[in-house]
């Protein structure tokens, strides 16, 4: 009946063994950690992708400006020449060009079809300006255009960029908030599971106290078990989440709206941080629950 000789277990391993491993809390903790981490991977992907997309749009708009010329027909060419002269002498401009009728037709084609009679319509003349590094003084350029070509209006896309930047910031915030809420939900569920496990094992706790166990020892036994379960579950959840993100349709197939959704480059490493974070959450939640429950049991 003697147990087989085995390598002596470490104090931590021995501590974990004093608590029975069976029970519904075991799989509940692992499942919760897996599910929450899976959701976290998607929240993270969405947050990163949204921010990246908005940054890209904002950057693209920030580097270009448009000059719109609305003038009487006889003034159009004179003011066009004046605008081009002003642009050629303004420092900080990498390139510029007047958009000809063919390009204007191509721009309007999605809305009006291919047969739009541009020549017979009072459509403003457009100029595309690409900014150099460092850029130009937009106020100075605006003043010069007003003086040389009164029908010209400089649009540096500020009114488009600001809401995009705000949207990007809000999307990032919502993404982080989602992750925080998922983390808090996981902490709450693990706390409930830990308290249930402590309540189930009251007799074990009484025996341990009887033989001189400190609260820290009893708590350690539970905390270690729940932390390991949460870590294991989160690893599975992170792997499943990464597989799910990797399996998303390619940008071309999914269409423009989904362009860039997922992780890029080192971004794929971010989900790897989730299992340790889940373990930390479980550690803190279980430790808190354990000491609270042990105080109640006195």
């Amino acid at each position: 009946m003697k147990p087989p000789a085995a390598k002596p277990a470490s104090p931590s391993t021995r501590a974990i063994r004093v608590v029975p491993s069976s029970g519904p809390t075991a799989w509940l903790t692992s499942f919760t950690a897996a599910a929450m981490t899976f959701l976290c991977v998607f929240a993270l992907a969405l947050s990163l992708a949204s921010g990246r997309l908005a940054d890209r749009w904002s950057d693209a708009l920030a580097r270009t400006a448009t000059i719109r010329l609305s003038a009487p027909a006889e003034q159009v060419q004179v003011q066009t020449d004046a605008i081009l002269l002003v642009l050629s002498t303004t420092p900080g401009i990498a390139s510029y060009q007047a958009i000809d009728d063919d390009d204007t037709r191509a721009l309007l084609e999605p809305w009006f079809g291919p047969d739009l009679p541009i020549e017979s319509l009072p459509i403003p003349r457009l100029f595309e300006v690409v900014e150099a590094v460092p850029g130009y003084d937009s106020e100075g350029l605006r003043n010069r255009l007003t003086a040389e070509a009164p029908g010209a209006i400089l649009d540096d896309h500020t009114r488009w960029r600001r809401p995009l930047a705000e949207a990007a910031a809000r999307l990032r915030f919502l993404g982080l908030l989602s992750i925080a809420l998922i983390g808090a939900t996981m902490a709450a569920m693990i706390t409930l599971a830990a308290r249930a496990a402590l309540a189930t094992n009251i007799e074990v706790i009484r025996v341990l106290r009887l033989v001189g166990a400190k609260d820290s020892y009893i708590a350690r036994a539970f905390v270690r078990r729940f932390t390991l379960r949460a870590f294991g579950g989160a690893m599975v959840g992170a792997a499943a989440g990464l597989a799910g993100v990797a399996a998303l349709p390619a940008a071309d197939a999914a269409g423009g709206f989904l362009t860039g959704l997922g992780f890029t480059g080192a971004g794929w490493l971010w989900p790897m941080a989730l299992p340790p974070i889940a373990a930390l959450v479980a550690f803190v939640a279980t430790r808190r629950a354990a000491f609270q429950k042990l105080r109640e049991l006195t």
Binding site: R14, R17, V18, V207, L208, V211, K214
Partner: peptide, 20 residues
């Protein structure tokens, strides 16, 4: 009072175990 999931030897050693 014993821990029913642990062997008699492990239960006997419990006072040592809980003090590491």
């Amino acid at each position: 009072r014993f821990l029913d999931h642990m062997t008699l030897a492990a239960n006997m050693a419990l006072p040592f175990t809980v003090s590491d």
